[in-house]
C-alpha cells in the first residue's frame, strides 16, 4: 500500500470528522475513502476513528498518530519540493481552505495552462497564516481575505463574495427561501479560524442587523452546523444534512484578493490574473464596488424618540 497517500486521507478525515466532507475535499467518492481508511487501520493495527455514534470521532490512538502523520506528509512534501527545484521555477501559493477543492483545482489548472514553465506549489492556509508566510518569504503569492493589516504587502484587484447561511436541514429557517441576518438571533455561529479581520467585520454587521451570536466557534468544518448547534456563513454548499440559503439583502461582503510582498514576480502576476478569472467564474465572486449600499428603512415605532 502507498502509506503516505493513505496517511493523507487519514489527516483529511481527521480534520473534517465527516467522511462525506473529506471525500469531497479529496475529490473522490465516499465508499473508496472509507475502504482506504479501513485498510490503513488494518495496516497499523489500530482503530483510528470511532464511527459508532452518528458523529465520527478520533480515537485516542488516532489522535496520537495524527501529529506524526502530518509530520511525515510535510517531510515527504519538502523532499519532493527539494527534488523538484532546479528543474523548474516553483511558485509557492497560499489559498484559503474554504474555497473548496474544485476552485483550488481550477486555480492550479488555470495557472499551469498559462505558465507551464512554472510549477505551482499550493498550500491551504487561512489569511493570518498567509500574511505571516508572505512576510517571512515562505510564500510567494497568497489569496487573502480582507481587511488585512500588514505593512509591506501589495494586493491585486479586490473581489467580493456574498456568503449565504448554512443551516442544519431540520432548522425551521431552512424552510425559508432566503434568511435575514436578524432571523438568526439566538443561534450560535461558526466562523473560519485565523481570519481576524473577516471576523470583526462579519460580527459587526451581524450586530448591526440584530444578530448577536450566543457563542462564536472557530472551526474549519461544518460539523457543528450538521449537529444543529450552530450556523455558518459561506458559499453555496450541497451536503447531506445541510441546507444553504441566501442572506436577504446580501448584507455580508467578504473581500478577497491576491497578495504578495514587494515587487511581484512574473509568475505571481500571472497567478493573480488567473485567480481573478477563476474566482469570478468558479466561485461566483464579483468586482469590488458592485456591492449595493445598505439602507436602513426607518419605521415610526423604532425611530428617534418613539
Amino acid at each position: 500500500m502507498d502509506l503516505v497517500r493513505h496517511l493523507r486521507y487519514f489527516t483529511v478525515v481527521a480534520e473534517e470528522l465527516h467522511f462525506g466532507n473529506a471525500a469531497i475535499r479529496l475529490g473522490m467518492a465516499q465508499p473508496p475513502l472509507s475502504q482506504r481508511i479501513r485498510r490503513l487501520e488494518e495496516e497499523l493495527g489500530v482503530r483510528l476513528f470511532d464511527r459508532s455514534s452518528r458523529q465520527v470521532r478520533l480515537t485516542e490512538p488516532g489522535r496520537l498518530l495524527l501529529d506524526e502523520a502530518r509530520e511525515i506528509i510535510a517531510r515527504v512534501d519538502r523532499l519532493r519540493d527539494l527534488a523538484g527545484r532546479g528543474e523548474s521555477e516553483v511558485l509557492r501559493v497560499g489559498v484559503p481552505p474554504d474555497l473548496g477543492s474544485s476552485v483550488i483545482a481550477a486555480l492550479i489548472a488555470g495557472f499551469r495552462e498559462r505558465s507551464p514553465e512554472v510549477r505551482p506549489a499550493p498550500a491551504e492556509m487561512w489569511s493570518a497564516d498567509q500574511v505571516l508566510a508572505l512576510l517571512d518569504g515562505t510564500l510567494d503569492v497568497g489569496v487573502v481575505r480582507h481587511p488585512v493589516t500588514a505593512p509591506g504587502l501589495s494586493f491585486g484587484p479586490v473581489l467580493v463574495q456574498r456568503p449565504g447561511v448554512v443551516l442544519a436541514e431540520d432548522d425551521p429557517l431552512a424552510g425559508l427561501s432566503s434568511v435575514h441576518l436578524a432571523d438568526l438571533a439566538g443561534r450560535r455561529l461558526v466562523l473560519f479560524p485565523r481570519e481576524p479581520g473577516l471576523h470583526e467585520e462579519t460580527l459587526a454587521e451581524c450586530r448591526r442587523q440584530g444578530f448577536v451570536p450566543e457563542e462564536v466557534h472557530e472551526a474549519q468544518t461544518l460539523g457543528l452546523v450538521l449537529a444543529g448547534t450552530a450556523v455558518a456563513f459561506g458559499p453555496q454548499v450541497a451536503l447531506p444534512g445541510l441546507r444553504w440559503r441566501p442572506l436577504l439583502g446580501s448584507p455580508l461582503a467578504w473581500r478577497i484578493s491576491t497578495a504578495w510582498r514587494g515587487q511581484a514576480g512574473e509568475a505571481a502576476v500571472a497567478f493573480g490574473a488567473v485567480a481573478v478569472r477563476v474566482l469570478k467564474e468558479n466561485a461566483g465572486m464579483t468586482d469590488d464596488g458592485a456591492a449595493p449600499e445598505r439602507r436602513v428603512r426607518t419605521r415610526p415605532a423604532s425611530g428617534f424618540l418613539a
Binding site: 436578524a182 451581524c206 450586530r207 448591526r208 440584530g210
Partner: peptide, 11 residues
C-alpha cells in the same frame, strides 16, 4: 438595552 444595534428587534 440591546446587544444588537439594529433598529428593528421585535424580540
Amino acid at each position: 438595552r440591546s446587544y444588537g444595534t439594529a433598529q428593528n428587534q421585535p424580540r
